[in-house]
Design a protein around this nucleic acid. Structure first.
Length: 427
RNA sequence: GUGGGUGUAGCUCAAUGGCAGAGCGCCGCUCUGUGGAAGCGGAUGUUGUGGGUUCGAUCCCCAUCACCCACCCCA
């Protein structure tokens, strides 16, 4: 039987086991964010398209936003990213907020693109930003948060590394090569694509964009210079800070990291599977003008975003997603026959009153069937209330893990179940 | 938006221009007061949709839709 109405292209359906993973990821994100003293916040899911027109980069707005007319005829869009909402919310209360702001968020976003591996049209994103301070150490803190996240989900530096670069350093070096400022945006795109194109293709692309062969050679030398960061006082301080924070092994300098978004003005960074598998797991950087772009006074910030789709793929690849626990902490009260339904309902209610998560089988059925149900749902504690037990005011408690069972007085059932749930090997 | 691939049972996939298959899963029984194992038995298909070629199409051709992958862009 096939459903006649399919899910919308690029959306995902979260069956309970997937939902467990999503909630687990959210929990990891929360844990790391709060560990660094960040506060959770959120913006609207619907925004006016004009909000993004300002700075997000042309393509994101024109090609990839979900835009609808509402009933009043206004153009609204499902948010494709969070940073513009952040900038506005900061600008609106600019003089009341306490700086530096440390804010994080995890919520849904939409982008109208062709779905493929690691990319859907509806996805969740972790955003985390520090706003109102302009120190390399603040930049380093965000990188350290990335590293701490990776560490907390047991991804090692042999599996994923964070690559860092600095846009001002790159601009300064391009100027030193005699490449004028007007061309920098194009050159950045070129740099961004180096890993994706064949060498000769890349050369041709460079020449197309007005570079001489000499320029290209110089650029290649620049991009292969893994010591280039030493020329940037800021990067030196950032790497220093990262060392002190104990996350240096997760980080490397990479002069080819540039990033697509236009609003970055300082450091930029991305986390990648070291084998180059897939795409960037997270990305971010330092921005100076975002708040002023939406009408506030200039306020610097640094932040990054991580999508749940790539993150989940990565965790799956390395076997780091937790196993489903289903109803492992829940008890099942079986229903022996129609005459005992009432007793079972009563017992289940008694357990719930004691705070025990309890399922009562919804009809009389073979014990075999009810136990099989428990087994498949991951339930480990089952209570049997049959005629023999009922006669003595007792109930049988069975541990499905060890296959052992005991009989206790109904009045003591809750205590025994609690004990068993706390110590599954105890029976 | 561009290019490529795939559509067959609930799932994963096989097959052949001439009766539509397997594994897994599901249901039942062995087993009317005890789950995971085993054995036995059982159900399930307009072969994505529409058209064409053919005596005959699941197979070949065309169209269409859906999904997947890559590019673009990006989380």
């Amino acid at each position: 039987m096939k459903p006649t109405i399919q899910a919308v292209k690029g959306t995902r359906e979260f069956y309970p086991e997937n939902m467990e993973n999503r909630q687990w990821l959210y929990g990891q994100i929360r844990k790391v964010s709060e560990l660094f003293g960040y506060q959770e916040w959120d913006g609207p899911f619907l925004e006016k398209i004009d909000l993004y027109a300002a700075k997000s980069g042309e393509e994101l707005v024109k090609e990839q936003a979900f835009v609808f007319s509402d009933r009043g005829g206004d153009s609204v869009t499902l948010r494709p990213e969070l940073t513009p909402s952040l900038a506005r919310m900061v600008a609106q209360k600019q003089n009341e907020l306490v700086y530096p702001l440390r804010w994080w968020s995890f919520g849904p976003f939409w982008r109208y693109e062709r779905p493929q591996k690691g990319r859907t049209r509806e996805f969740f994103q972790w955003n985390i930003d520090q706003i109102g301070v302009n120190s390399p150490e603040a930049d380093a803190e965000l990188v350290a948060i990335c590293a701490s996240f990776l560490k907390s989900v047991e991804i090692s530096p042999e599996q994923v590394l964070i690559s860092i670069n600095h846009r001002k350093l790159m601009e300064q070096e391009l100027i030193a090569l005699g490449i004028e400022k007007e061309k920098h945006k194009t050159i950045f795109r070129l740099i961004d694509r180096r890993d994706k194109m064949h060498a000769d293709e890349w050369n041709a692309y460079g020449v197309e964009n007005g570079l001489s062969l000499n320029d290209l050679e110089n650029l290649k030398t620049l991009l292969d210079d893994k010591e280039l960061w030493k020329k940037s006082e800021e990067l030196v301080r950032i790497f220093n800070a990262l060392e002190k924070m104990g996350v240096k092994e997760y980080v490397r300098y990479d002069p080819s990291i540039i990033r697509g978004l236009d609003y970055y003005t300082g450091i930029v960074f991305e986390a990648w599977d070291v084998t180059g598998d897939g795409r960037a797991i997270l990305g971010g950087g330092h921005y100076d003008n975002l708040v002023s772009d939406v009408g506030g006074d200039p306020l610097p910030g640094v932040g990054f975003a991580m999508g749940d789709v790539m993150a989940t793929l990565l965790l799956q690849k390395f076997g780091k997603l937790p196993e489903s626990v289903n109803l492992a902490d829940t008890a099942l009260v079986t229903v022996f026959d129609d005459s005992l339904i009432g007793s079972s309902l009563n017992l289940a209610s008694q357990l719930r009153n004691e705070g025990i998560k309890t399922v009562c089988y919804p009809e009389a059925a073979k014990l075999q069937k009810q136990l099989k149900f428990a087994d498949r749902m991951g339930i480990q504690v089952v209570l049997v209330l049959g005629p023999d037990e009922a006669q003595n005011g007792q109930v049988t408690i069975k541990n499905l893990k060890t296959r052992n069972q005991i009989q206790v007085k109904i009045s003591e059932a809750a205590a025994s179940v609690k004990e068993l749930l706390a110590n599954p090997q105890g029976l």
